[in-house]
Every structure is written in C-alpha cells, then in structure tokens.
C-alpha cells in the first residue's frame, strides 16, 4: 500500500537530512530543516487524505463520508511553527554573519 506520497515524504526528509548533515553553509542548513519540515507536513496531510471524502462542514452536508480535519489542523499548526523557527534561524544567521563575516559552520566553534 505504499503510495507515491510516502515515497515523496521519504525523499524530502532524506534530502533535508543530507543538507543539514553535510552542507557547511548556515543558510543551506536552514533550508535543509525547512525541507525536512515540508516532508513531515506532507506526511501528515497524506495521512488525512480520503478518496471521495468531503470537507467536514456540517451545514447542508450530503450523506457521504467526511474527512476528519485533525491532520489538516496539525499541518497548519506545524507550518506556522516551522515559519517561526525558520525566521528565528535566519535572523541568527544574519547576526552571526555580522559578527564573523562567514557562514561556514567549521570556521567558528565554541570549544574550551
């Protein structure tokens, strides 16, 4: 029953992890996290997909199956949170660039 969404989810998450683990540029790391986030969101949305289901609005609804809106609500919340996290990380990146004039993760590290 593996459908095309789950393949896309796996692909997106592995791409994102690859970017976060192997790319040395701070902005690319942020992009990688966003891509992981998109993969997870796609996963949640595809969990809620029901073929032939209609939107769960009770007024004048026909007697067909309605979709449980929970996964959509989860995805919406997680998109908003993802936006906040991305904005936070990018602002850290801007300020770090102002301090060190470099975006390489290997250049500056807290040790000792």
């Amino acid at each position: 029953m593996i459908s095309i969404h789950f393949v896309a989810v796996a692909l997106l998450i592995s791409l994102g992890i690859y970017a976060v683990v192997f790319r040395r540029n701070l902005i690319k790391i942020v992009m990688g996290i966003s891509v992981i986030g998109s993969g997870v969101n796609l996963f949640l949305v595809s969990l809620g997909y029901r073929e032939g289901g209609i939107a769960p609005i009770f007024t004048n609804a026909p007697q067909t199956a309605m979709v449980l809106p929970v996964p959509q609500a989860l995805t919406l919340t997680s998109i908003v949170i993802g936006l906040a996290v991305t904005a936070l990380m990018l602002s850290f990146t801007i300020m770090l660039y102002g301090h060190w004039k470099s975006l390489d993760t290997r250049k500056r590290r807290l040790l000792e």
Partner: peptide, 25 residues
C-alpha cells in the same frame, strides 16, 4: 548577542528544530 552566544543559540535551534520535526514524524 555576542558572537558566541548567537552561535550557541543557532546550534540549539538547529538541533531542537530537527529533533522536534522527528518527534512530529
């Protein structure tokens, strides 16, 4: 807002964002 504290905060955000996404998964 020193370079070092920003760096610590960036690392913390990256790590916990990845962790939270895995948790959501």
């Amino acid at each position: 807002r020193s370079g070092k504290s920003l760096e610590a905060a960036f690392k913390y955000t990256v790590v916990s964002a990845v962790g939270a996404l895995f948790l959501l998964f």
